[in-house]
Write a protein that binds this DNA or RNA. Structure first.
Lengths: 346, 346
DNA sequence: TTTTGGCACTCAACACAAAGGAGTGCTAAA
DNA sequence: TTTAGCACTCCTTTGTGTTGAGTGCCAAAA
């Protein structure tokens, strides 16, 4: 197939997409030749546009309107046409400042990241909270609240704190709890949670555990404390920016999207996809594989701590997003968070 | 003034308000006499309607439309006309079931409360997380994460867990931390956080503290751990229900409201108002004193633990809300939460 | 062979007018 | 005091041009 576009076609496609991103209006041949840098007659441009439509990069809402990009058009744009420049020093500083006043608590930092993503991109910010299983064990503490109730506090290497109330069927003294705490902290330090879980399972099966009441308790408690949230969690900020988008002025459609956000699970799935990927990932429209989001695009990037990838963050908006300005924002935020997680909490 | 409405006027006002709540359409005299239980001629009804408009209970969008309630109308309805019945057993059970599977962790419970309020009312659910200062001290624990970094974990009587990372400028051994922990838990148990803070301040001023290094540290740490969140916190669920309301089909107006939600501070202020009040409180339109919410109403109720009021929860929607069905939902949820907080975590 | 000017055509968007109808206020009769 | 009747208002709907941006195609120019 003739999917190898000529230089000229590419230039025109790029101009159309960028103009459409800026104005949200179908782009006509005249506008291209007059205001944008196309030095051809409208008629020639029309020929190219017809060709691009044929090939599936453009579509026309109706005969007498201009052209708008298709998903394939956006995809080609993002993959080959786009020119992404780094943020300049000033912008980076501005973003970085957002984290200045905040404490060291990881949860706050992630929330701030989502806010910052949203306010700098003017779309909706998404930050996935690290799954327990990818985090590194740092410390566990059991606090006895009542004879049958223990609060397990669990801190990961990257500074994430999780609490869990554990009901126990056998009273434990403070002394015993302390012993359990010490034992676990010594044996498990530096392991990933997955490893900790595995360790607990194998040790439980061993004879030693069968006869040592305290050890048995220790394992029961820790496995209860470390049950993974099945769902994962996500921080969404700036949903209201969706209401600014002319493409979502239809309330029905708008409502479906907001509901999808509230439900979270779909967004979690989409962010999960970015976990294995290096650098910034762009998911456009139906590539999400969710009909609810067929008019939305995501720009995501993974962030990591000392010991590898922790989660992903990004921005969601309409297909018609200024990719070239948002990609560096997402990119920089991810690396910033990674850096903060690296240097924090030593 | 003639603000003492006759029985007949009240009946008609009630019918108009309830019809308008149901249909979101201005109510005309004919509809009242035909379908609703008014046994008068349209002309008579019109006389009464004109009178009610004169008095400020009704308004007409334009001459040839029916009447819609004013804020004053809604206020009168809520104060004197409304018939609120209790939820029946089945509905109560349905609501209660939502909390069944969930653990005992307070934060989860409050989130579930917000969800339940939203889904049962079909509007937006609001739950205010208890302010630290109104909670009762139960337990504090300091976990040393690194030479200069201590994690303070703080549990309130009602089961709320709060973490805070505290940077210290002087290394403390585990032993010392334990002593501090023990000292604080013994001295402060059962006091409210306000009292704890006061205690810390006075003791710090006393001579004893000046010379006892550990004591001094204990107070520094605990006051660092217990600094109040200035803002308070709030759990909002079901914003998307707002998109269903015909009165907010204007995107501009819609966006202002959603932004107000995201910002949270205004909603926190509104929920705060319900703290001192017994039972269900209704705030209608401009009674909120915020122009952003001049078309919104809140139905709130306070919930409490063993030791008094903890916070408030409720529902926010358009002025045109089915108050009579939502009031019992909010009421029951508040009492349910109070009950759960009472029995939990002993 | 490629580019361009010219021209007929399409179709959403806008404006305007007319018809329809729901609802009101007022008056006079029951 | 209530109600039937009637003129009046004004939103809503429907229909009809009109406009204009933009297209596709063809033939002439480069």
């Amino acid at each position: 197939m003739a999917d190898t576009l000529t230089d000229r076609s590419q230039k025109i496609l790029e101009a159309i997409i960028e103009e459409y991103i800026a104005t949200a209006q179908p782009v006509g041949s005249k506008a291209l030749t007059q205001n944008l840098g196309i030095k051809l007659s409208p008629a020639s441009v029309r020929n190219v546009m017809a060709e691009l439509e044929e090939l599936g990069y453009l579509a026309s809402p109706h005969t007498s309107a201009g052209r708008i990009p298709t998903e394939k058009g956006y995809r080609f744009y993002v993959d080959t046409l786009i020119r992404v420049s780094d943020l300049d020093r000033q912008q980076k500083d501005q973003i970085e400042q957002q984290y200045g006043q905040h404490g060291l608590q990881m949860a706050d930092m992630l929330r701030e990241a989502s806010r910052t993503l949203s306010s700098f991109s003017r779309y909706t910010g998404l930050v996935m909270v690290p799954r327990l299983k990818v985090t590194i064990f740092r410390h566990i503490e059991f606090v006895k609240l009542s004879p049958r109730l223990v609060l397990a506090v669990f801190v990961t290497q990257s500074g994430l704190v999780q609490n869990k109330l554990v009901e126990i069927d056998e009273d434990l003294t403070h002394r015993e709890l302390e012993q359990i705490t010490n034992y676990l902290n010594q044996t498990m330090a530096g392991l990933s949670i997955q490893e900790v879980r595995a360790r607990v399972v194998t040790e439980m099966a061993q004879e030693k555990a069968l006869y040592d009441r305290l050890l048995r308790r220790a394992f029961t408690l820790s496995s209860a404390a470390l049950v993974d949230e099945i769902t994962g969690n996500i921080i969404i900020e700036g949903t209201s920016h969706f209401l600014e988008q002319p493409e979502f002025s239809d309330l029905k459609c708008m409502k479906r999207i907001v509901q999808t956000f509230e439900q979270k699970s779909i967004l979690i799935d989409l962010l999960d996809r970015g976990l294995e990927t290096e650098g910034v990932q762009v998911i456009i429209g139906s590539e999400t594989a969710y009909s609810e989001l067929s008019d939305c695009s995501l720009i995501t990037a993974a962030y990591s701590g000392k010991h590898g990838t922790l989660g992903t963050l990004g921005v969601i908006g309409p297909n018609r997003m200024p990719y070239s300005t948002i990609i560096p924002i997402v990119d920089y935020t991810a690396s910033l968070i990674s850096r903060l997680l690296d240097t924090d909490n030593d």
